[in-house]
Each structure stands twice: as structure tokens, then as C-alpha cells.
């Protein structure tokens, strides 16, 4: 068990970071090359102001007409994303690991905050799951893969939460915690989760395609 944990937090973690970052770089480089050749429309009308406005309006709660049409969902959707990023980055236990390994770390939030935010993420996750099941326009689009990715996204949070509170088999939970997080990171560059970076490009594009060319607000 110890050996497994050591492997997952050692070589496997390195591999994960390399695949995660390398994968994103490869995907972006590939798309950049392809776009230079086939998507002249992207470069012909590129405009930073409209691009940034378009991104910003979709990052702030109810910043777009679309979000205002579905205020509850869009609020949950933003809180979910904030939690997804904030908990792993600012958890003190994670920062201690960074500090031990490299002597550098990020600012840490208190454990109480992290604990609360984890519960919020899980609650949002359950909300998103229920929404997928009950809203016909979402259910009709949903594939098994969407449920898998949602489950996979929540697993590190569930396991981390249980392990922190020492509920259940701690060692098993930690192995599952690290493993699921690694699988998730590895998948990001190759799946719809790539929206983590690609969102900024597609949102900017529609921002200047509608805005710089026509003055229309794509939000």
C-alpha cells in the first residue's frame, strides 16, 4: 500500500504533470498550426478589446444574457468552477507538499474554508448531475462520457474530504484521491475538459467575430 502511494505521488505524479502540460501545449500548437492554414477568419478580424470583453462577461456571475436567462444554474456553474480551481490550488496540505518538494508554495486557505468549499463543490456537482437527469434539453445531449467525467471530477473531492475527516479507510482513500486526480489531469488536454484553456480562445473568437466586425455583444 505504501509502495503504491509512493509510486502515485512520485513517478506517476511527474508523468501526470508532463502529460497534462505537454498535452495542452501539443493541442494548442496543433490547433494554432491548423488555424494559420485554415481559419483565416480568426486572424483577419482579431481584436483584443472585443475578445477580452467577451471572456470577461462570461467569467463574472450573470455577466451574460445567457446566464441571466438561467440565473440559478449559471451561479452554481460559476461557484463550481471557482471551487474546482481554488480547493486544489490553495489547500494547505497541498501547499505543504509543494513546499517540501520544491521549497515554494502558494497562499493557503484555512482548513475550515477548504472543507466548506469542498462541500460546496460536491453540492454543485450533485446539482449539475440532477440537472443533467431532469432537464430534457440537457438530458438529450448527455452521453455516458459526460457522467463519467463529472464523476471523475468529483472523486478527488469526495475522497479528499473523507480522508481529511478520517472517515473510512484512510490509505485506500488517499490512493484513490491521488489516482483520480491524476487521471483527471491527464484527460484534460484530450477531452471536452480542454475548455480549461480553449474556452479563452473560442470565447474571444466569437467576441471579435460578432463584436469587432459587427458591434454585436456576444454575451
Amino acid at each position: 500500500m505504501q509502495a503504491w502511494y509512493a509510486f502515485l505521488t512520485g513517478p506517476a505524479l511527474w508523468a501526470t504533470f508532463i502529460i497534462f502540460l505537454g498535452g495542452l501545449v501539443i493541442r494548442l500548437t496543433f490547433l494554432y498550426g491548423l488555424s494559420r492554414e485554415r481559419d483565416r477568419v480568426f486572424y483577419n478580424h482579431m481584436d483584443w478589446t472585443w475578445g477580452l470583453k467577451s471572456i470577461l462577461h462570461w467569467l463574472i456571475p450573470w455577466g451574460s444574457a445567457s446566464m441571466r436567462l438561467q440565473p440559478v444554474f449559471s451561479f452554481v456553474f460559476i461557484v463550481f468552477h471557482v471551487g474546482l480551481l481554488a480547493v486544489p490550488l490553495f489547500l494547505s496540505a497541498h501547499n505543504i507538499l509543494w513546499d517540501r518538494a520544491f521549497g515554494v508554495s502558494l497562499w493557503s486557505m484555512s482548513d475550515a474554508w477548504a472543507d466548506a468549499l469542498t462541500m460546496v463543490v460536491l453540492a454543485c456537482g450533485v446539482f449539475l448531475l440532477i440537472r443533467r437527469l431532469v432537464r430534457p434539453e440537457v438530458r438529450i445531449l448527455t452521453t455516458a462520457w459526460d457522467y463519467t467525467l463529472l464523476g471523475l471530477t468529483l472523486t478527488p473531492f469526495v475522497t479528499g474530504f473523507l480522508a481529511y475527516h478520517q472517515w473510512g479507510p484512510y490509505e485506500w482513500l488517499m490512493i484513490l484521491h491521488v489516482l483520480s486526480a491524476e487521471v483527471l489531469l491527464v484527460l484534460i488536454p484530450f477531452t471536452k475538459l480542454g475548455h480549461m484553456v480553449l474556452f479563452f480562445f473560442t470565447r474571444a473568437f466569437i467576441g471579435f467575430e460578432m463584436g469587432a466586425r459587427r458591434g454585436a455583444r456576444a454575451w
Partner: peptide, 9 residues
């Protein structure tokens, strides 16, 4: 496309 978070055209 204006109502899609990713601006899919």
C-alpha cells in the same frame, strides 16, 4: 453563438 459559454458558432 452568443448564448453558448464557448461561443460555438
Amino acid at each position: 453563438s452568443m448564448y453558448c459559454p464557448f461561443g460555438i458558432d
